[in-house]
Each structure stands twice: as structure tokens, then as C-alpha cells.
Amino acid sequence: MDVLNTLEEKAFWGHEFLTWLWYRIEEHGGEVPVPGMGTATLWIEERLTLGSLETDSKENILRNGEVARSAEAAAALAVGKKVQEVRLGLAVNDREYEFTLKGDTLDLAAGKVPSVEGDPDEGWHGTALVRAGLIREIWDVLDALYREFVENRVSSAWPDTVTSMGRWISEKRGA
């Protein structure tokens, strides 16, 4: 089978990851220990897209305000929708980032990294190295989180996670 087709068929991994990430941030905090970096902090920004691969139901695209705490987001989760795309904020030490993460592909979009003061002695090489280092920080945090998710997803602890996520959704609905 074609590699790309296989990857597309397994896109649910990404949607589950983003939904779990939202749950993790709200229920267990957005702090992420990253090897060699210390602790990063992640939060949901003002954009969230929910949908379902299993049904033809309409996507919910939520923008502006506290989308993660909105009644529409809770209602979408309650009917089985998962996160297809999320805008995240990230702080690492004194550096702040913002980006949209796509569930199907884990592509980054509309990303903002701290501005880089170019060193005239180093020319464009210096700017490239610093910006690449900043982008690497985003991927390091996402990789640490994805590892945590995958290890949980295939472990015997997963049914408990699902139950806990169900409770979280019920509480959001009741809130």
C-alpha cells in the first residue's frame, strides 16, 4: 500500500492526540518537561476546529475568545467530535510562540516565533541558525507530548484515560 495513503488512513491518531492534548492542558496543566530544555508551558489560543472522521457531521470552527471553554466546543466533544486543528501558545523560559497545529498531518501553520536580532558579523547564517533553533524548540515540545500520548495510547492505562476524558467532557457540558 502507498505510504501516503497509509498515513492518511491513520489520521485519527492526530485528531486523538490534539483532543487528548486539550484534556491534558485543562485537567493536568500545560507544563511539559522537555529533556535538555526544562519545562515548557502550553495553552490553547483562540482557534479550535472540531470534526468527525466517522460521520459526515459539520465541522465546528471556533474563533475568538475562550474557545476551549465555550459551550459549542463542549457540545461538539459530547457528540463524539475530535480536534482537527488547534491554535496553541507556548512559553519556553522567556520566549513565547504561537502556532496552529493540524491534526491530519501535524503540519505547523501561521506560526510566530520571537523576533531575531541579526548580527551583522554573522550575516544571514546567524539569523538562519537562531530561527532554526527556535523552531526546533517547538518541535521538541510537541515531540515530548506526542511521546507521552503514544505511550499512553498503547498501554493498559489507556482505558482509564478514555474514562477520564469522558468525565472531563461531561463536566464541560455541565459547566
Binding site: V3, T6, L7, K10, W13, G14, D104, L106, D143, V150
Partner: peptide, 13 residues
């Protein structure tokens, strides 16, 4: 190889 969710999961495990 694109680092899509499934291929990244494969690398993790």
C-alpha cells in the same frame, strides 16, 4: 518520510 501522526507514532514505539 512525512512525519505525520502515524509515522511519528511508529518512531516513538
Amino acid at each position: 518520510r512525512p512525519l505525520f501522526p502515524y509515522s511519528l507514532a511508529l518512531e516513538v514505539l
